[in-house]
Amino acid sequence: MEGYTASELMSIVAMQGFAGISLFSVLLLMALGLAIIFGQMGVINMAHGEFMTIGAYTTFLLSSMAGEFGLVDYYFPVAIIVSFLVAFGVGYLTEWALIRHLYARPLDTLLATWGLSLMLQQIFRTVFGAREVSPAMPGWLQGSWQPTDAIDIPINGLFVLGLTVLLTTAVLYYLYKSRSGVKMRATTQNRMMAGAVGINTKRVDRFTFALGCGIAGVAGAAFTTIASTGPTTGSLYIVDTFMVVVFGGAASLFGTIASAFAIAEAQSIMEFFMSGSMAKVLTLLFVVGVLMIRPEGLFSVKVRK
């Protein structure tokens, strides 16, 4: 670290830390959906990344439509909602066609959803082409915020962070305060009892799965503001997302938040001191190492098995 003054170093840490926050936002948005699907329901959805891509492409389509009518500045909030709805719909169909037949065979779900992810990737490639696309960015998302001369924080990163906080709060509120969230937790914790007290567990399952997919769709919409989207974009994040959920403790949403933060910051700060690939290797090795010592993850819910 020769040649940096103290204030320069501070700026580096601030900016690198903020780059980590962007990664954290994407990982957390992805992981929130997966924490519901995998953590709560125990379904391994290898196609989760593709649901994010669905959201990203939906945003792209809306932005090109908005571009024709000159509404580029206003389409984005609509895009978030539509992305959610599209991913929710596809998730709903997936649960009906595929997942519901496989609840008793978790390893087979893994293979089937992997097959689904391959098919979706090919559909993206056929429809949108193999090249990466970026939607037109509204003016208010461009530019950066400069608290001091040396620190330069991009607005889109701040926006995604805001969206992440909002969505996380909403999911937590939904799961712990709403009527439907209570039903969902009841079903995942004790299916037979939930059925006995009159909850339609099949419907709850389908809704839960679709909700997780919908959140992935929102992650996709947010993702378009910081990077471009290609057919395989989602699959690049799927292993990391699973690691976030497992590392945090599968059944704990707070664990998911903490582990997304830890993984993203570790990777992004190490990236400054070494190559990106080594930073990734070390981060993942650390996570795997911790999981070998503590298989239940950082925050575990005590359950009787």
Binding site: L111, A112, W114, G115, L118, M119
Partner: peptide, 14 residues
């Protein structure tokens, strides 16, 4: 191919 491979995964499992 990729499409068929995906379908194969699903068909084998289901």
């Amino acid at each position: 191919w990729l499409f068929m491979m995906g379908a194969l995964f699903i068909a084998v499992v289901m």
